[in-house]
Design a binder for these strands. Structure first.
Lengths: 122, 122
DNA sequence: AACACATATGAATTATTGTTCATATGTTCT
DNA sequence: AGAACATATGAACAATAATTCATATGTGTT
């Protein structure tokens, strides 16, 4: 076990286990990748969006229906659907005036299920 | 297919597919559960915390090591570790002055992996 | 007991983000 | 073309949260 101590730039304390830190550093994904991952989870990290995702897992729905279901304004829902779409979590199709939203892929359900499993253990 | 239209409280538009909405409403988990789920994902939704989780997946580490690895202050890391611990995503053990943090359960990895899978498809 | 060190924490500041309000876009129907 | 409706969007406001700074706590060492 190494106990060398090295000052780093912005850390006000010292590295205690340099070897471990170096080993872990090598295995870390690119900064950018982890940033993107955090951005993805940020999308799941809002109760309005989670409720939308959960609802769409049951059935495709139009914006008004979702707004009514969640008792929120059409505008608020529309803004959130945009966020979900940018994250490629939902897709939509148009049928006349009405736009139907649905889940875009299976990861959504898997991620939610894992999250639920964690909560239920509490 | 039902096309009844009903005004709802706070929605500025009308329910278009009442049956669908009612069916979905029945299947929705309790409001509180989905709130908790969102709170969980919120914890994953920060790049500092995601990097900490990823690092701890490689090896248990002390606070200084993590601070050094991520080039951040000890204080910032400590604050985030508290958030992670409250969410039961990490645990710690003391060895003298040093406190080692590690992942608390397997969901962390599974959730991260699903998230990564989603990103990589993009 | 005094000191050094690893970590934790409270308050302040800055940054980010969700919702609202007003309005714009795009579609259907007459 | 104009009216009605479903949805989208930009700006403003309010709420939340991440980091910093100063300092406190807890442990080991001399």
């Amino acid at each position: 076990m190494s106990n060398k101590r090295v000052f780093s730039d912005r850390c006000d304390c010292e590295v205690i286990h340099e070897e471990v830190v170096n080993k872990v550093r090598e295995k870390m994904p690119k900064e950018e990748t982890l940033y993107d991952l955090a951005e993805l989870f940020k999308v799941f990290g809002d109760s309005t969006r989670i409720r939308i995702l959960w609802a769409l897992d049951e059935s495709e729905m139009c914006v008004c229906d979702i707004a009514s279901l969640l008792n929120m304004t059409q505008s608020a829902i529309s803004h959130q659907l945009r966020v979900l779409k940018q994250a490629k979590l939902v897709k939509n199709r148009r049928e006349g005036k009405v736009i139907y939203y649905s889940l875009d892929d299976d990861h959504v359900r898997l991620i939610c299920d894992q999250g639920m499993a964690h909560i239920k253990e509490g």
